[in-house]
Nucleic acid binder design. Structure first.
Lengths: 350, 350
DNA sequence: GTGAAAGCGCTAACAT
DNA sequence: ATGTTAGCGCTTTCAC
């Protein structure tokens, strides 16, 4: 690959001049600029970004760490971030933090951070792993003085920029929809309430119920975890007594939703004929359900876009930014079949 | 961020020695190595990959260009490629070639190539865009003497390494399944036969039918395109006459499948009660169908993994490789509801 | 086994 | 407006 030197030779100018026309930082006469541009095209010259980065100590590259980009939410986030980054002349390196079978999760996290550090990314978009010490991870990066924006999962007591959906509002949207469909005995199935997100969603449920004047029954709040099998077992138990059965169920995340649906099936319950259902978070391709499931969808692309934009503001030291910026976006309701009134249940396929 | 020089100072050795312990290319005494390692940890030093790349002109970075990573097939491919790359110490930059609304497709392609060239990626995994001149793109890269492996979509008359599914076999698997379910009048809905892949799948259909001794009726081969709406219109027309209606339909790609399913609905046909259905390629999250759709699934992760591995073989000049390597992987059948016998159609939901 | 030094390709400060 | 040059952080030859 040709270097700037060769371009200079071919154009009959100095390397400085070539650099000047490339960066545009210093004016160059029409005549020489033309010569240089011709030489560039003739040689099929592409500026060596590596050398430039070394010189300027600016790689114009961002990193994004997601648990698993085969989970449909994340590619959208990445795409949003990539678009925002490219708009401002930055590239994006995406890496998966979930174990691919070999490494310890903790170890892998460190490796990835180290990788991105070595690559000299100028900022990191981070979806913290559901690992033991997320706080440790983050403060380690913050220590390195490389800007970080957290998305989706927000660490509990670390002051860090973040972009995510408004959990409380999102859950409320879902529950309010169920209420508007005429259901009153609505059960909530949550993941571990140790997670901030989950607590937020629980709060949204409470608010929606209270706003509708429906008393919140503690017996209808079922705390599960993120493993579908466990949740299914929990729900089977709760659903066993027909008389105590809720009219509708709202679940606060994808894996939990799968557990609930499995329990419905195991109990011989059909949706929405026997029980209505809605959930926070889109389900994955691998689980094609019918009736289609009413879902509170996160604005994944926007989350990525806004996060990258904020990160770049930090990197480029945009003036007048608050110390810690927290962006909360609004989720959208996708009404599908599972939350319909029983009498409106589709009688046929497709 | 500390540099190798600071490490050397702290450790009381020369930068050369530090470099030697880092790369391991030159033996260093136990004593000094320990000192160096201590200094590295103490300073939280991370080797500057940018500088190393400049010196060695090896970035240990691969690029992958996919049309749109929010299409579920591609994240899996990328993940496979990332895993293979990381196993051999390489990083991966993924970029989307589909227009995000602003740029011309052709232009964007060039930009991306230019971007990756500037980043000095050592090899490119390429899913060619369904653009006018894929051949132009590729030969331009090949000219630059940077190794390329094509995946998924293989250009027609360019000698280039490639990894993809065996289209003919994949289609045959799907059609044979329908035959094994007892259907004989099986229609085929294809995308544009200008595409090599589509022609391969047509061939697979023919073979499967012939092997089963079923005469291929030209009137049951419906050539559509990649837009669901068009395909739906085509199929509505074909399905209008009940007497001429096939017992089953196989479609050769995702968008086409959506068109077919839409036509079924429009014609009041239920699957599998009125007509059986199977397709090549998994459908996306956004289209939650019931009955669930029998699908011939591509080994997406493996395609990515194998492609990256092959690319790295090229980059590292592994001996004894053929001039052009063509890897064809086998697809898998996922039998779901849409291809069942009518009498076995599920009578209830979920 | 260890260190000194050249140089990868570029930018930017400086000299002209 | 143009050219010259130091130096970004590292690897690697080559002395020692």
């Amino acid at each position: 690959m040709p270097s700037i030197k060769e371009v200079a030779e071919v154009a009959g100018v100095s390397v400085g001049t070539v650099s000047h026309v490339i960066t545009g930082s210093v004016p160059v006469s029409e005549e020489l600029r033309l010569k240089v541009q011709t030489a560039i095209r003739g040689l099929n010259y592409h500026p060596n970004h590596v050398a430039r980065s070394l010189k300027t100590s600016k790689t114009r590259t961002l990193g994004i760490i997601v648990p698993d980009m085969t989970i449909s939410f994340f590619p959208q986030v990445i795409r949003g971030a990539e678009t925002a980054a490219r708009k401002r002349g930055y590239a994006l390196i995406a890496v998966n933090s979930d174990d691919d079978g070999e490494r310890q999760k903790e170890l892998l996290q460190k490796e990835l951070l180290s990788l991105l550090r070595s690559q000299r990314v100028q900022g990191i978009l981070l979806v913290i792993a559901a690992a033991p010490t997320p706080i440790g991870q983050i403060s380690r990066i913050l220590d390195a003085e490389i800007p970080v924006v957290c998305l989706d999962r927000i660490p509990d007591r670390v002051p860090v920029d973040s972009v995510s959906v408004d959990d409380s509002e999102a859950a409320a949207i879902g529950v309010e929809h169920l209420i508007s469909m005429g259901f009153r005995r609505i059960a909530l199935v949550t993941g571990p309430l140790a997670l901030k997100n989950e607590r937020g969603r629980l709060q949204g449920y409470r608010q929606a119920m209270q706003r509708a004047g429906i008393p919140v029954e503690q017996s209808l709040i079922w705390q599960g975890n993120l493993r579908a099998a466990d949740v299914a077992a929990l729900c089977r138990e709760k659903l066993a007594v027909a008389s105590a059965r809720p009219e509708a169920v709202f679940s606060t995340n994808g894996p939990t939703a799968l557990g609930v649906l499995r329990a419905f099936r195991d109990c011989g319950l059909s949706t929405p004929r026997d029980i209505a259902f809605a959930t926070f978070d889109e389900l994955t391709v691998d689980d094609l359900f019918f009736p289609s499931v009413t879902t509170v969808v996160q604005p994944a692309y926007d989350i990525g876009f806004r996060a990258a934009d904020l990160l770049l503001d930090r990197i480029e030291r945009v003036e007048g930014l608050a110390d810690t910026i927290t962006i909360r976006l609004t989720a959208t309701l996708k009404v599908r079949d599972s939350s319909q009134r029983p009498e409106r249940a589709l009688p046929n396929f497709l």
